[in-house]
Design a protein around this nucleic acid. Structure first.
Lengths: 193, 193
DNA sequence: TGTGACTATTCCGATTAGGAACACTACTCT
DNA sequence: AGAGTAGTGTTCCTAATCGGAATAGTCACA
């Protein structure tokens, strides 16, 4: 039956299972809020083309109207959409996460540059992790109050907690790599903290 | 000067900084060996088209010959290639890793299916992590003997150790999520181990 | 009245994914 | 010897995805 839908399509269906109906723009915002940390937030162009496909297949219903003089379309998941999502969740092996870890790529070929460059890069990464941790903490806090079993944000909270652990772990890994680089007496200037 | 090269291009240049010259096929194999765990191993088609571009720009030298009746081309990095790689490493901010974590995506919308499905998925993930850990351990072991400062596999070893920590951490995160799912008395059948 | 910030959608080119297809080599099993 | 199968090496194709520019209207604020 229904030809394959890319995972991004299911991600969009998933974002529409929280009981509201959204425009493409709002979906993008919700994706940036929640998905961004562990799923490359899809480009606008992709969201809109995916919305068209999902609507064509009857998995979404489109509510096109005019609001203050301009055309606006918002989308809601249909019963068929719920069923398709469910079928995907239950019937597809989860598959291993795909990672594009520029930092590790560059660490791998660290011999192609000066040690100090590599150290700098790792420090930068730790700083970015710190920022991500802050951002995600905010998201996590915004879910409090409805994060108990059966409540609306139960699963998003589990994911946010996972993400917080994840970033904390990455920080440790980066620091361990830094320590390995240091411990061996490879010369490097003192770093003012 | 040189228009932008995609990161995959630099990854290929990087794989050729270990002092040998390789065919496209061998590069793919090396990528599968090393990059695979933290950088989506590029498709064959991509490797070959990237090799062509890098050669056109003078960053690789191509050695086209006939070997046992069939055409074979192997590639080596040029001085210009070394310089371009170095410039990229030193001049480009590393950027945050991009993750496409299907497991987390599905956990996020766990309310769209039965709790038991979600548990099953997490168990599957833990099993896959176990396998990845085994594979990577093998790679790590194969680097021993030349993994000290200044030696050839110094940086690959750092990366492999990072990867091992990474998978171990993921296992903990998954298990923590499983525990959260369980602790709350959501009904589920006993799981035979 | 203009300037910038936000909402909303469309369009475009390049990169990437994920193979299949093709062809030749080398080994094993019968 | 012949068949089958695994491995090496390259090319080609389609769809998915990225990333941002272009367009366009609304709203707030000075």
């Amino acid at each position: 039956m229904s030809q394959d839908i890319p995972v991004t399509g299911y991600a969009i269906l998933g974002l529409l299972t929280f009981g509201d109906e959204l425009t493409g723009y709002e979906i993008k915002r919700r994706a940036d809020m929640t998905l961004r940390f562990y799923w490359a937030s899809p480009a606008m162009s992709q969201i809109y083309s995916e919305l068209r496909r999902l609507t064509d297949r009857g998995l979404l219903s489109a509510d096109a109207r005019t609001e203050g003089g301009r055309a606006v379309t918002s989308y809601a998941i249909t019963d068929a959409g719920q069923a398709a999502l469910r079928a995907w969740m239950d019937g597809t092996p989860a598959g291993f996460p795909v990672l594009k870890h520029t930092v590790l790529l560059r660490l791998l070929i660290g011999h192609a540059t000066e040690p100090e460059q590599t150290r700098q890069m790792l420090h930068d990464y730790v700083a970015e992790l710190d920022r991500a941790l802050d951002d995600l903490s905010e998201v996590r806090d915004s879910l409090r109050g409805a994060d108990r079993p059966g409540e609306a944000f139960r699963f998003p909270s589990l994911v946010a907690d996972w993400g917080l652990d994840y970033f904390a772990a990455e920080t440790r890994h980066a620091q361990r790599a830094l320590a390995s680089l240091d411990e061996t007496g490879v010369e490097h200037p003192p770093r003012p903290e």
